[in-house]
Amino acid sequence: MHNCYFFSEKTSQKIKNVFAISYNGNLYFQIKAILKNRNKDDRAQSSSLQNSFVRAIMGGENYLYTEAELVNKWAAGTAVNFGVAGGAVYQGLIKGKGIVWDFKNKEFNIFKSCKDYNEFIEPKLENAVQQCEKHQPDMLQVREAISIIK
């Protein structure tokens, strides 16, 4: 399972305020930890499911990679002000965004947009830069690039 919650065996309460959990050979990052430890340029990202976890999809010596449903909180705030129609717009703003844990810099880098992804990948793997026909990068191409630089 990619998105989940973890519960304490002793108290049956949701586990909160942890960085990550290793479970059945998989590593899961808590969304709250991703947002708390993100690159300073990724500050507008948010989630309504901060106590949930996302599984690390791949990793290597440089990065661990995952994807999470995050939203730009300023765009979401604007959408919510438009009532029921705004709620539908808000749901459309939530995207599965690529996220890398950068071992060297000890921070998460969230690919907020195709442009943001390109700025991250260009110095590392120039031929993985995308043409940005849409606001979000092609996630299959993102995964391929990360599998090379991981």
Rank of each mutant, 00 (worst) to 15 (best):
residue 108 F to T: 00
residue 68 A to G: 02
residue 136 Q to G: 06
residue 61 E to H: 12
residue 140 L to Q: 15
residue 73 K to S: 11
residue 86 G to Y: 09
residue 111 F to A: 02
residue 124 K to A: 10
residue 134 K to Y: 14
residue 124 K to F: 10
residue 72 N to R: 07
residue 148 I to G: 13
residue 52 S to H: 15
residue 110 I to T: 08
residue 51 N to D: 09
residue 135 H to I: 12
residue 81 N to E: 09
residue 50 Q to R: 09
residue 83 G to T: 08
residue 84 V to S: 12
residue 96 G to M: 09
residue 60 G to C: 06
residue 101 W to R: 00
residue 126 E to C: 01
residue 137 P to S: 10
residue 142 V to K: 03
residue 123 P to S: 02
residue 49 L to V: 13
residue 70 L to N: 03
residue 126 E to K: 09
residue 102 D to Y: 04
residue 75 A to Q: 11
residue 73 K to T: 10
residue 53 F to G: 03
residue 59 G to Y: 10
residue 101 W to C: 00
residue 143 R to A: 10
residue 63 Y to D: 00
residue 109 N to Y: 06
residue 102 D to F: 06
residue 127 N to V: 08
residue 76 A to H: 14
residue 128 A to N: 13
residue 60 G to W: 07
residue 144 E to D: 13
residue 86 G to N: 09
residue 60 G to R: 09
residue 90 Y to E: 11
residue 96 G to L: 11
residue 91 Q to I: 13
residue 93 L to Q: 11
residue 110 I to Q: 01
residue 117 Y to A: 05
residue 110 I to P: 08
residue 121 I to G: 02
residue 124 K to L: 14
residue 113 S to P: 04
residue 60 G to L: 00
residue 109 N to K: 15
residue 105 N to R: 08
residue 73 K to V: 12
residue 86 G to F: 10
residue 97 K to N: 05
residue 50 Q to H: 12
residue 110 I to G: 08
residue 84 V to Y: 12
residue 129 V to N: 00
residue 76 A to G: 08
residue 123 P to L: 04
residue 124 K to M: 06
residue 128 A to R: 04
residue 72 N to V: 09
residue 59 G to H: 01
residue 87 G to I: 11
residue 105 N to E: 13
residue 115 K to M: 13
residue 114 C to I: 02
residue 132 C to D: 02
residue 143 R to W: 02
residue 54 V to Y: 01
residue 149 I to S: 07
residue 112 K to F: 04
residue 138 D to K: 07
residue 72 N to S: 11
residue 53 F to A: 13
residue 117 Y to W: 01
residue 74 W to D: 12
residue 124 K to D: 06
residue 102 D to P: 08
residue 92 G to P: 06
residue 123 P to A: 00
residue 67 E to M: 09
residue 52 S to C: 13
residue 147 S to Y: 08
residue 138 D to Y: 11
residue 122 E to Q: 14
residue 140 L to W: 14
residue 106 K to E: 10
residue 120 F to W: 12
residue 138 D to E: 15
residue 142 V to W: 02
residue 85 A to T: 13
residue 66 T to D: 01
residue 139 M to R: 12
residue 61 E to L: 14
residue 149 I to W: 01
residue 85 A to S: 15
residue 53 F to K: 04
residue 56 A to H: 04
residue 65 Y to F: 13
residue 67 E to G: 06
residue 68 A to T: 01
residue 118 N to K: 12
residue 99 I to Q: 00
residue 88 A to M: 15
residue 138 D to Q: 04
residue 71 V to A: 07
residue 65 Y to T: 07
residue 79 A to Q: 02
residue 112 K to A: 05
residue 50 Q to G: 05
residue 63 Y to W: 07
residue 62 N to K: 11
residue 94 I to P: 07
residue 138 D to F: 10
residue 65 Y to C: 05
residue 136 Q to H: 11
residue 77 G to F: 00
residue 110 I to H: 00
residue 98 G to I: 02
residue 56 A to N: 05
residue 70 L to M: 10
residue 59 G to K: 14
residue 77 G to K: 08
residue 135 H to F: 13
residue 137 P to T: 13
residue 93 L to F: 14
residue 98 G to W: 05
residue 113 S to R: 01
residue 57 I to H: 02
residue 121 I to F: 00
residue 90 Y to I: 07
